[in-house]
Amino acid sequence: MIPSKFDYYSPATLQEALSLLSEYGDDAKVLAGGQSLVSLLKLRLASPRCLVDLGSIGNLSYIHEDGADNLLIGAMTRYAEIAESKLIAEKCPLLRQTALVVGDVQVRNRGTLGGSLAHADPAGDMPAAILALKADLKATGPKRDRWIKSEDFFLGMYATALEANEILTEVRVPVLNDRQSAYLKAARRPSDFAMVGIAVCLKRAKNGTCEDVGLGVTGITDKPYRPQHVEAKLRGQKLDPAAIGAVAQSITEGIDVNGNIHASPEFRAHLAGVYLSRAIQAAIGS
């Protein structure tokens, strides 16, 4: 690894980290688990003047309930911790299902939930789950905290609603009962970024129809998104393969689908439909 020169800070408190961000502005990058940023540094695709490492700030890694039917997850909580958490397995299995297929073991041991969301890779896995769960994200600034809805958080390729002087510190996930969920991704190899990733969080009525559904889509366009028009179409529907199939292809409606060497836009759109169907069926079977 031969990056450009940078100053490295390892603040012990969030306040110190925030004041560094205020000082350096766009010249600073926040280092969480390092699983995305370090690769960019290595290739000199990112050459920030300073790195602010959150690793020494003690209280950013936790998973607990807030007493108001929410799970609170600290931004520095690692994928492996999410995948292993009994609380998450019980209250919000979609997070566990998603964390289990992020990258490989090494990535899951180092990478963090907050890092993934704030990095906003257009093919990141966790954003899809966060969108399907309709979670909220806490941005901590020098003066105050503010909550951002997940659907408002991702603005474009590696771009989020965070200001340069804010740090994503917490994710708040509503605990919903009687939900079924799945995250399925199409990737060349299991450890790769998603060509398409679909997160489904589903509530079925007693008669088997869809009472409520949250969807998150990743890998398709410049940002992970929540296809609300598809959610609306599914609500009240019978969830048999024919009915799902009829809706599935509209998942990329109005979306500018990306292509790269692993999948053209046409193939990605095709896969999105296939994976939506499969993800819903997997959720029903979960």
């Binding site: 690769s39 290739l43 190899r189 450890s191 970024f193 692993h262």
Partner: peptide, 13 residues
């Protein structure tokens, strides 16, 4: 030009 795009077989494949 990186192993993110030049894909090698991994144990799972």
């Amino acid at each position: 030009t990186t192993f993110m795009d030049y894909l090698k077989p991994v144990a799972a494949t």
